[in-house]
Design a protein around this nucleic acid. Sequence first.
DNA 1: GCGGCGCTGTGAAACGCATAACAGCGTTCT
DNA 2: AGAACGCTGTTATGCGTTTCACAGCGCCGC
Lengths: 229, 229
Amino acid sequence: MTIKRPRTRRKLGRRTVSELVVVRLILYRRILRDLAFSGTRYVFSHQLAILADVTPEQLRRDLMNVRYEGSPTRGYEVVALEERIGAFLDPPTTQSVALVGVGNLGRALFAYFLGRRPLLQIVAAFDIDPAKVDRMINGCPSYHISEARTVMRDKGINVAMIAVPAAAAQSVADILVEAGVRSLLNFADVRLRLPPDVYVEHIDIGVTLEKVAFFARRPVAAAKDVGPA
Amino acid sequence: MTIKRPRTRRKLGRRTVSELVVVRLILYRRILRDLAFSGTRYVFSHQLAILADVTPEQLRRDLMNVRYEGSPTRGYEVVALEERIGAFLDPPTTQSVALVGVGNLGRALFAYFLGRRPLLQIVAAFDIDPAKVDRMINGCPSYHISEARTVMRDKGINVAMIAVPAAAAQSVADILVEAGVRSLLNFADVRLRLPPDVYVEHIDIGVTLEKVAFFARRPVAAAKDVGPA
DNA sequence: GCGGCGCTGTGAAACGCATAACAGCGTTCT
DNA sequence: AGAACGCTGTTATGCGTTTCACAGCGCCGC
């Protein structure tokens, strides 16, 4: 869920790739992993497109960005394509992530990380509650937010997740950015205002939920575009 | 976070409104609430635009959809505009929501609903774990998923949130749709395949997180569009 | 009272993205 | 062996959204 803004883009080789393409590539790779796991060797664009809920044309167009060529007769080789997308998406080295806010949501995020995502690791948690600080949570040390700057620098963290109440989110974000974070994932229901060179992604459950509720009330055959006039 | 597809639209009066507009309207209203709470009476489009992280032109254009006119000299009257947007967005009556999956994330969602959102209420929770079933959770009864159909019908639920492991999500979704749900909010990291008249919104934390990590590695001044060639 | 300023609302242009259409080619079937 | 099929990669078209630009107008200051 997101608001359309001047898209952040990133160069690869001499090309520039939009956020939308990146998101879909991530999705394709996940599907390819599942396919590889289930023993599939080759896949056609229309098959993969169905699994990703995308048109085949769009899939092929997206794949142009990663410079991988499929065979007209066999389609794409699952493992090879997965690796090629990985080469495009993955960091050269493991990225360290910080989590701020160890409430219900924070714990859910910890649970989410277990096992998965070897290339992204939560190496530090922060909170303001003394009861939650200076402990180990899922093998990860927790600190008081006031130590953020030191810890972030020491551990070379440049990605952070914010899972604190809305009222605290902006000041937390300011602290993080000041401590060198380049990229944020914000779960608080507030639009953060930050310098333009910081990448922010909002997961705004409140807005998303209202949106879903709104569209639950639309006319039955809306998908067919039946509007008069 | 979402993939661009043929946009779901909804008529209002004789106009049709896109998802993007709806999302922004929801956001504007939230900001207006905060402004009203802090005692602000009037607001100009450029002020509101900054708070919403949008251009003033876009804000004004969005507001055209709700048929509210501001004054050239005072701007928009905060409370009146908030109410006007509410009249556009809100359901005539309270909507009942179901939550499937009472794990970490499910509980976080319950916590989220506390106090807020009088127009959306979780009236039933479902799980497959016997230990979590037939209890009260935050004043809401929990049932085994096998009872979904009956309960959903009885309570007139047409919106549901899915917070179960990825492997179970599709079958849960099928059950829900079969039980009459029109609109889904899915937190599982799987793309659900459902009939086109069902509205689905994905909150895919895995994808979003990878995206954030990816853009943390972009060149420093990317925002200025410094690409050569 | 009149001129000028700054805001709103909206038509028109520009942009980005998705969709459609097509050329190339390896495989397979006759 | 030759032809036809179906898939890929890519170019061209179209659409939706955002951005630009300006007309209209109430208020404020002179």
